[in-house]
Amino acid sequence: MIVLTTPTGQIGRQTLDRLLAAEAPVRVVVREASRLPDAVRDRVEVVEGSHGDPDVVDKAFAGADSLFWLVPPDPRAHSLDAAYTGFSRPASVALRTQGVKRVVAVSALGRGTPMADRAGHVTASLAMDDLLAGTGVSYRALTMPSFMENLLRQTELIKKQGMFTSPISGNRKVPSCAIGDIAAVAADLLLDGTWSGVEEVPVLGPEDLSFDDMAQIMSEVLRRPVRFQQVPGADFKDRMMRLGTSEAMAQGLLDMALAKDAGLDNAVTRTAGASTPTSFRQWCEDVLKPAVLA
């Protein structure tokens, strides 16, 4: 039995689709079962509730062999520790008591770098990995750079003003990955019952690009000018807080961006195994272009 969290989120949904296509037995943890499509609900076991709840994870993990773990976003959390290790602590107890063998978790690049202890959400993700791996399970942390899909948050800005922004400088070449590729790597690991031990699995996409490079590619795909604008960190944090993000979580986002701008995501050597197939250009054709033109 494979337990999957966040089945209605972008990564969770696509991972679930792949598991069902392989006819694997799946149990999902979802806050509201009604959010699952009927065709999915008929093919999975459903445990309703939050996977941060001790009673829910006890029930969900019973008799399970493998777990897909993803902490849901909590922009209003009072601290990064509460959002990551605090949320995951009930699961760390249930992993021990219920005897789950393997965990595949969504995490981040950065372990071992000079920036890792001051990288906001990344630092919190790595602490979560330590908590869960410390239970004795076999553990695979999918370590990712920024997702291409993060740009969809700026769809209206791209559509109306022909620009997108970040605190990261426009000439810093970094990896980025598509959510569909993350789901493919996660599903392959969840379907494989032979691995053991604790390892990181980088998911780097096929190339390193700067935001200036991305702007050029977006311009070509959308057939309209798109430019990148670096914004001051203080302005970025203020905007996040105006949108409802807590001060702690907004600072975490800024610290993560500053660490990435200092080379956090460039520390892992790219290999064939870490290079996933979806290029930024293909992602723009398949995902960004329909969103902008809608």
Rank of each mutant, 00 (worst) to 15 (best):
2 I>Y: 10
6 T>S: 15
7 P>N: 04
9 G>R: 09
17 D>P: 06
27 R>G: 00
27 R>Y: 00
48 E>Y: 01
50 S>K: 07
62 A>S: 10
64 A>C: 12
76 R>E: 14
80 L>V: 04
84 Y>C: 11
92 S>G: 09
97 T>S: 15
99 G>P: 08
115 M>W: 15
115 M>R: 09
119 A>W: 12
119 A>S: 15
120 G>C: 09
121 H>V: 15
122 V>R: 13
126 L>P: 08
129 D>N: 11
146 S>Y: 14
146 S>W: 10
147 F>T: 02
151 L>Q: 14
152 L>V: 09
157 L>G: 06
160 K>V: 13
161 Q>T: 09
165 T>E: 11
170 G>H: 14
174 V>H: 07
180 G>R: 11
180 G>Q: 06
180 G>S: 09
180 G>E: 07
182 I>A: 01
182 I>Y: 01
197 G>S: 11
203 V>K: 04
206 P>D: 08
208 D>Y: 12
209 L>C: 04
209 L>K: 07
211 F>I: 08
219 S>K: 03
220 E>I: 02
220 E>A: 15
222 L>I: 07
224 R>Q: 15
225 P>H: 05
229 Q>R: 11
235 D>Q: 13
250 A>L: 05
259 A>F: 10
260 K>T: 13
263 G>E: 05
263 G>K: 08
263 G>Q: 11
265 D>T: 11
268 V>P: 07
270 R>P: 10
271 T>R: 01
275 S>N: 05
277 P>H: 12
278 T>Y: 02
278 T>K: 07
282 Q>E: 14
283 W>F: 10
288 L>Y: 12
292 V>Q: 04
